[in-house]
Nucleic acid binder design. Sequence first.
DNA 1: GTTAGCATGTAAGGAGTTACATGATTTT
DNA 2: AAAATCATGTAACTCCTTACATGCTAAC
Lengths: 198, 198
Amino acid sequence: MARRGETLELAVLGLLHEGPMHGYELRKRLNLMLGWGRVLSYGSLYPALKKMLRGNLIKEVVPSGPQSRRQRIVYEVTPQGTEEFARMMSDVGPSAWEDDTFDIRFRFFSSTDMEIRLRVLEGRRSRLQERLDRVQRELSMTQAEVDRYAAELQRHGVESVEREVRWLSDLINAERGQGNQPVLPVTSPETPSTSTST
Amino acid sequence: MARRGETLELAVLGLLHEGPMHGYELRKRLNLMLGWGRVLSYGSLYPALKKMLRGNLIKEVVPSGPQSRRQRIVYEVTPQGTEEFARMMSDVGPSAWEDDTFDIRFRFFSSTDMEIRLRVLEGRRSRLQERLDRVQRELSMTQAEVDRYAAELQRHGVESVEREVRWLSDLINAERGQGNQPVLPVTSPETPSTSTST
DNA sequence: GTTAGCATGTAAGGAGTTACATGATTTT
DNA sequence: AAAATCATGTAACTCCTTACATGCTAAC
């Protein structure tokens, strides 16, 4: 059911699976992936880490060297953490193709199997398709007086979403054709606007 | 200084300037513009309307017809509301080119003059450019082991932001060349990836 | 040795969601 | 007349940010 707030946990567990890290470092990496603009504050991160410590998902690493270079607290994943991460990744509910969550799941796709990946990609795609349909429908009703800038914003928005749909479709094909072709997914030099008229 | 939370107020005032509306209707329109996926809950909207009522930014409209078709409460903007809206729109601070806020400001660009519009567009553009630079810089450092999916996500992200930068540039040019050309801004069939190497 | 930036943390508060609760109007 | 959906509202809670507070370590 993926309660809200698992997003950060998922991201942290994913990153820690790539190696032990301290909070400050985690934040830097999270900021690179989280929503492309947002920055995560310490006020969110540290309490979350504390909570995960209490839940035994992660544990503090005792630095092996003699002089410990104390102060920074390095975390690593516990077996329970690994289990929980796997559970979260394979728990494909509607929230998995939400804007925020999708990126994080995608980022850690290597940790799941193709079946899950396909379900997430396809879920995301139909979610976007729904949005397009909804806007298109809504647009044909309000048609009357349209502000110039409002219209331009709609146009650009629709185009962006259509673009992401194409991206997802390419990825889905790549996953399906996996084994035959080189799996480097796409980088198509922009599909030349395959008529998207109503 | 645009305190956070003015976003919704701005959107509501903007919409109400296009005509009186009741809350339910407002929500529908807000959902079409707000963040392209998010839906605004009543738990946000109605308290916000109450607050704006108290602040005299909007007022209830007494339905003119004889049988009032009661139940829905139609709002319209007060002179103070118009004033406040103008103030907000011309208050161009860093928050004006934040993801959420930018779209709403753009949506109501018709209500401001070119000077403001240009400042918002240019601000947004440099904000995006900063992001790109930051990622590019960060990317050259972490270069080591890159996960396939992580890399693909980065690639797609960078491409999307670059795309938006081009869009903004076109709009800026359209604003500047305003009066000469027909101002319908662009719809360029995808600039063929002008090398964005370091 | 002092400034700059690394590193961790907490408390208060904002903005919005969920869930709940209710009643009117339109459709079937 | 029942069901659907329009329409408004409130209370509790969640997630996150801001602002504050503190100490270590590296550079100059």
